[in-house]
Structures are given as C-alpha cells and as structure tokens.
Design a protein around this nucleic acid. Structure first.
Lengths: 153, 153
DNA sequence: CTAGGAGCTTGAGTCGGCTCTAGGTCAAGC
DNA sequence: GCTTGACCTAGAGCCGACTCAAGCTCCTAG
C-alpha cells in the first residue's frame, strides 16, 4: 500500500474527509485513531493514507450511529493487534443489529408518514377537482378535516 | 369518537405513551400539543384520548428524527384549523424525505458493516478449522490482519 | 520586518432533548 | 394530626458530539 508515501496536514485531511480540523483533534483525543497521530516539525500533525482510510470507516460507523465509546473500543482492539478478532466481531455485530433495528423502526415510521401524506394529497386533490369544476366545495356536510387529530391531522 | 369521555392524569398518559411526565410537561411547554392541555382541580393536567392519539403520532415523528421545532410547526398548523393543508403536506413531505434519505444512508452503512462482519467471520472460521484439524495456525506467513486498517480492521 | 495563514493547546461554549431538583399544593388513609 | 403519593412550577443539570476562542508558534511572501 501507499500508506507510507503520503503525508497530509490536518487541513488536508479535513478537506478530504469532510471532518472539521476541530473534529479531527477531538477524535484523536478520544482515542479513535489506531496509531497515535505522528507529528512533524513544530509539533504539527502528520496523517498517512492509512489514517484517512481508517477515518473513512469511522465516518461510516458514526453516520450509522455508533457512539464514540464503541468506536474507541473498536480502535483499541485493532491497536492491540491480532488475536482479538472475536471481540472485534462482537462490536461490529452489535452495531449491525443497532443499525438493522434502526432501519426497521424508520421504515415503520415511514409507513405512517406515507399514509398521512396520502391522506393530505387526496384531500387537496379533491379540493382541486372541485375548484376546476367551478363547483364550490361543500362547507358543512363534507368530511370535516382535523376533527380527530390522531388520524386526520 | 370517545375523545371526550376519557380523562387521564399525566401519570396515566406517561404510562400509556411511554413518555416520562417530565417529557410531557416539556412537550406542552414546547407547543407540541394541538389544544392547550386542560386543567382539573388544583391545576392538574387532564388529558383526553385525542391527546394520547396525537402524542402517539408525535412519538413516531420524533422517533424518525423530526426535530421538535418541526413538530411544533406541524402542531401550529393543525391548531389553526382547515385551510392550510398544503403547508401540512409540505412539512410531512419534507420529513418523509429526511427519513427516506436516512434509511438510504443507513442501508449503505449496513453494507460496509456487513462486509466487515463477513471478513471477520471468514477469518475466525478458518482459524477454527485449523484448530479442529489439530494443525497449528501459521503465525508468520498467513495473511496479516490489521495491516491495512481501512479494509481489514 | 511584518503580515497572513496554518497549526498548536487548553478550556469553555453550544445545541437538542430531555431529566432532575427544590420547594410547594392537595386529597386520601391511618 | 401526619404521612404518603401524585401532581404543580421554575429553573438547573446532563449527555453526546462537536465547535469555538484565546493566546501561542511557525513559516512564507511581500
């Protein structure tokens, strides 16, 4: 790999990961990196391609809701080296389940939202049709909207 | 409906919605309710079945990541009464897209996680097979795990 | 030689969404 | 009369994950 041949400043890493320089320093402090971040002249951080690759994974895990402590734990295990693959797997599996569950819950919510969107679309469609036919909407006898917040709002 | 016939204390509502009494008071303060919560003797809150139904919707919207301000806006529109259905629809559609996007992103993340889980499973499978055959694992020549954090860790 | 820009550290501030505390009212039961 | 328990208000505190500010060191260009 070319992990050794590239060396990036914090600004460059921020640019290509989308993380802020603040977040990068924060992550370092939180022990998210596998290797301690190297330092160049003047104490400046020097990142390798491997660091960026690792960050890419981290970003994905974070984006899917893995809490920082779990991420740190995972980094700890990787840092320890070979021999703890079961534990790494456990961390990943736990997160996998979290995400699967979350997707399931969101999908359920989406059903309800879709249903309500449909209700309002129908409502507006009808109103629109009434207008187009130059037939004033019945204002007293029709189905009264918003009378039962739980189902119609 | 039986919205008028039931009247519940804050504790009962907490019990049947799963929200805490704190959260209920907080939501009220944040303007999440459509009707101002009625008060009984001694200034105690009295909730109707409609309130509980509305809360059920709120819980689903919150669970799918709708921010409180959006929820309040939606409640505001419903409170205003008929005539603003387009706006309600807009709020719902916006949220619908948020959720769809979120599910998409989570699904992508899940792909990567599944991939990594698979890698570790294979790794451990192999190790297990080696042990069962009473054949000591090669410790120097095999594929070295964790050498490229981005893909193997 | 000085101004700008990127980086450094430490520590404080922010935001969303609750959660908890303090101090008080009220009704029921012993 | 006293305790208990559910409720009230106002306001403080907490958690996670950043984000920002102050005050410093460098290096480079004009």
């Amino acid at each position: 790999m070319d992990g050794d041949t590239v060396s990036l400043s914090i600004g460059q890493v921020a640019e290509r990961t989308g993380l802020s320089v603040h977040a990068l320093r924060f992550y370092e402090q939180e022990g998210v990196f596998v290797e301690p971040v190297r330092r160049g002249p003047g104490g400046r951080r020097v990142y390798s391609q491997d660091d960026v690759d690792w960050l890419t994974v981290c970003i994905i895990l974070r984006a899917s809701g893995m809490p920082l402590p779990a991420l740190r734990r995972y980094a700890d295990l990787v840092r320890e080296g070979a021999g703890n693959e079961e534990e790494r797997l456990a961390v990943l599996r736990e997160h996998q389940e979290r995400v699967t569950g979350q997707i399931g819950r969101l999908t359920q919510c989406l059903d309800l939202i879709g249903f309500k969107v449909g209700v309002y679309e129908d409502l507006l469609d009808e109103a629109q049709r009434a207008v187009e036919q130059d037939r004033p909407r019945p204002s007293g006898g029709g189905p009264a909207p918003a009378s039962t917040p739980g189902t119609s709002a």
